[in-house]
């Protein structure tokens, strides 16, 4: 990688040119301010809250701690890439139905984390859910309804599979 400030990212299946970024700018800021993808939220700038979670090359990461230019050539998925507008994924719908959303600021990050969790661990235990989501802080819900939402999806997917 050079000092070039013009690069191309691969986001939600599309190639997106980044033309006006400064070296060192985080993926979170580039997504939000340069590419208009404001689904990922910034709440701590330190990787402590998970609100900015996105998936880069199949790994869940905090986009605030990814230097955007270092993600050239990687596949980036944001909450906007999970499902088409108005047709929520099973995880998204479960969050709505279970009462897992209050202010909703942590929600996009949690949606990414829960999809990642259930892709890797289809039937997580209570401890697995808590440990795998511990990087996503929610200040409104006390987490109870979020765990319920995760369990609902796990059960529904298991039933569908059998």
């Amino acid at each position: 990688m050079s000092e070039a400030e013009i690069y191309r990212l691969h986001v939600n299946g599309e190639r997106r040119d980044v033309t006006d970024s400064w070296v060192g700018e985080s993926l979170l800021d580039v997504l939000r301010d340069r590419l208009g993808l404001v689904g990922a939220k910034g709440a701590c700038e330190q990787g402590e809250c998970g609100s900015c979670s996105v998936i880069v090359d199949d790994e869940l990461v905090c986009s605030c701690l990814v230097m955007a230019a270092s993600a050239v050539g990687q596949r980036i998925v944001t909450v906007e890439g999970i499902a088409a507008p108005g047709t929520p994924s099973d995880v998204q719908q479960a969050f709505v139905d279970a009462g897992a959303v209050q202010c909703g600021f942590c929600t996009p990050g949690l949606i990414m984390a829960v999809h990642d969790l259930l892709d890797r661990t289809p039937a997580p235990t209570d401890t697995e859910i808590r440990e795998e989501l511990a990087g996503n802080v929610c200040r409104c819900t006390g987490y109870g309804r979020i765990i319920d939402a995760v369990q609902r999806v796990a059960v529904a997917r298991t039933e569908r599979a059998s």
């Binding site: 906007e80 998204q92 709505v96 600021f105 996009p108 949606i111």
Partner: peptide, 20 residues
């Protein structure tokens, strides 16, 4: 307990927070 009217927008990341 109907669901939140802003629920789908919030889970899809399209709800507009003041920072957006």
């Amino acid at each position: 307990s109907p669901t939140r009217p802003d629920g789908v927008a919030k889970v899809q990341g399209s709800f507009e927070f003041s920072s957006d």
